[in-house]
Amino acid sequence: MTPRPRKQVLLRLDPAVYDALARWAGEELRSANAQIEFLLRRALGEAGRLPGAAGPLPRRGRPPKNPGGDTPADE
Rank of each mutant, 00 (worst) to 15 (best):
Arg23Cys: 11
Arg41Met: 05
Arg41Phe: 02
Arg6Thr: 11
Arg62Ser: 14
Ala32Asp: 02
Glu46Gly: 03
Leu29Ser: 12
Lys7Cys: 04
Pro64Leu: 10
Pro72Thr: 10
Pro58Glu: 09
Leu10Lys: 03
Pro5Ile: 05
Asn33His: 11
Pro64Lys: 08
Gly61Ala: 08
Asn33Ile: 02
Glu75Cys: 11
Arg59Lys: 07
Leu29Val: 05
Pro58Asn: 09
Arg49Val: 06
Met1Cys: 13
Lys65Leu: 15
Glu37Ser: 02
Leu13Thr: 02
Asn33Lys: 10
Phe38Gly: 01
Ala43Cys: 10
Lys65Arg: 15
Pro3Cys: 09
Arg59Tyr: 07
Arg4Cys: 09
Pro58Tyr: 06
Arg59Trp: 02
Glu28Ala: 13
Ala47Thr: 06
Gly52Ile: 01
Gln35Ala: 12
Arg62Ile: 03
Glu27Gly: 14
Ala16Arg: 08
Pro51Asn: 07
Leu10Gly: 10
Pro63Ser: 15
Pro72Ile: 06
Asp70Ala: 15
Phe38Asp: 00
Gln35Trp: 01
Gln35Asn: 09
Asp74Tyr: 12
Ala73Ile: 13
Arg41Ala: 02
Gly61Asp: 04
Pro3Arg: 14
Gln8His: 13
Gly45Val: 03
Arg42Leu: 08
Glu75Met: 12
Glu28Thr: 12
Leu57Met: 14
Lys7His: 13
Leu21Gly: 01
Arg62Asn: 14
Arg41Cys: 02
Met1Asn: 13
Asp70Lys: 14
Asp74Glu: 14
Glu46Trp: 04
Gly55Glu: 05
Arg23Ile: 03
Leu39Val: 12
Val17Met: 04
Arg6Lys: 15
Pro72Trp: 09
Tyr18Gly: 00
Gln35Val: 04
Ile36Asp: 00
Glu75Gly: 12
Gly55Met: 08
Pro72Ser: 14
Arg59Gly: 05
Arg49Pro: 00
Arg4Glu: 11
Pro64Glu: 05
Pro56Glu: 11
